[in-house]
Design a protein around this nucleic acid. Structure first.
Lengths: 264, 264
DNA sequence: CGAGAGTTTGATAGTACTCAAATTCAGTGG
DNA sequence: CCACTGAATTTGAGTACTATCAAACTCTCG
């Protein structure tokens, strides 16, 4: 639950500069990301990279898209951490997804004139906006890229279904543990320790819990020696047990676009 | 929660024959569905319709795809009612989506070699299987169709996020009400009364509740005169109030693919 | 130092779950 | 045709998990 617009303009100290997709400091987050899934010709790579031509900085808590706002743009997240969420009529908030560099944001705009969700920056970020018409041109010219985009989007869809299953069918502790693992994996800091980057209230809004209960679950995970905490920084102490309590399923390792026909 | 494979081979009386997409009895559910979103040339329509060339009947409780099963096919649902779900390690089940005629099923197969979900028939159904390679050929030949598919998929994605928000942030009563409205709208029986077609346990597995509690919520909705029930048949008595208690948001009315470039 | 956000803790309330059993219903077999 | 069966629904009693409310505490920023 948040109060509308009540506190979205404070400054936060946890500005976590992130290199684009892990240690890869290329200028073309998204194109590189796709390239890790299927081989791209130089021409294809360049065509995708053109989606990232324009850059727009976003301040912490800045909104790139507001729910119900007319919008014909979509975005590549180039740097930072963002999220998309919906606000229900009683003011409660459901966070749908956290966005990391190389993610595509706002794709639902392909089917709706107005945005069905709000996209907000959790840290100082940089996004690359592009017109949806740009996508159809891209696909018209490179149908193979169209397939890649479609497949890529399915990966994030599975992230959604995993969250749904967690919220619908697992305990509070499991949900918090799962979110920690998600954040760790995706922020790709490599090993055990990572900066949380989100408040406990945000964890609650993503997992369907109250901030208070999230706090208690974190404490419990700490007391059980699954994690250690130090001022917003999380260290995973016992990987295996944390994954078990989270009912973690590794989807990343299952991704396979190998069936796609090679470039002409 | 279900017991694995425990009861998937009984017969049920509620076989509800459904015409393909409402009263439209065309042979090409899916193509017609896309055609309601954007104008298609005859050639494009025919190309899409070819996805529906093969037909396969599915018995009630028959599985078209099993979680973790190797699979390179995807499906158009031509007749009947189906669902996709995930089973968690404790045996609990999360229903992700109900499928109605004209829906595309198993699209996550574009990004994974093995299915990440199970797709099962709730009533006698007919599906049209097609190879994923067929899609990339289709898109290669008709990139505009590729865009339409992508946009179409975003609609069902929004359905997922709505369910997530409901499960994460609304009361049991609201979730059940919302599911009733979803089933009514999508089964397109037109007016107030419709056959539920799903058990209370299934409603629970879709909304993150137990069957017992679903039963109590249905009773409450009945006592408050929002719905009437008669042996699995639901009549919506008070539309407005039901929508309000469900925190219902109409997305269908917001769909807009008008921005897409016209056929060449 | 003061202010505001965020976190932490305690006490209490309430929603939804669990367990158990009764009931209804349609299909099955005698 | 009727008792039998298994699924599905319904109801009750008791429990547990999570929310709510309130207040103290911590930390950074101004």
């Amino acid at each position: 639950m948040i109060e509308f617009n009540a506190r979205w303009d404070r400054y936060r100290h946890t500005v976590r500069p992130q290199s684009c997709i892990g240690e890869n400091v290329s200028d073309h987050c998204f194109a590189d990301r796709i390239a890790t899934l299927i081989p791209l010709t130089a021409e294809e790579h360049a065509a995708i990279a053109r989606l990232e031509d324009r850059e727009r900085p976003v301040r912490r808590n800045g909104m790139v898209v507001r729910e119900n706002e007319r919008l014909s743009e979509m975005f590549v997240l180039k740097r930072g951490l963002m999220m998309s969420y919906m606000i229900l009529d009683d003011g409660s908030r459901q966070i749908l997804r956290f966005h990391f560099p190389g993610d595509l944001m706002g794709l639902t705009g392909l089917a709706f004139a107005k945005s069905q969700e709000t996209i907000m920056a959790l840290t100082e970020s940089v996004v690359c906006p592009f017109e949806r018409g740009h996508v159809s041109e891209l696909v018209a010219k490179h149908p193979r890229i169209g397939m890649a985009l479609m497949a890529f989007d399915q990966i994030s869809r599975v992230g959604l279904t995993d969250r749904l299953a967690a919220v619908g069918r697992t305990s509070a502790k499991a949900r918090v543990a799962a979110l920690l693992l998600e954040l760790r994996t995706r922020s790709s800091t490599g090993d055990g320790s990572f900066a949380l980057g989100v408040t406990q209230e945000e964890i609650g809004d993503a997992t369907g819990l109250t901030a208070v209960h999230v706090n208690r679950m974190l404490r419990q995970l700490e007391e059980e020696n699954l994690i250690a905490r130090d001022n917003g920084r999380i260290t995973v102490v016992n990987d295996q047990r944390l994954m078990r309590t989270a009912k973690y399923v590794d989807r990343q390792g299952r991704i396979d676009l190998g069936w796609m026909p090679p470039a002409a």
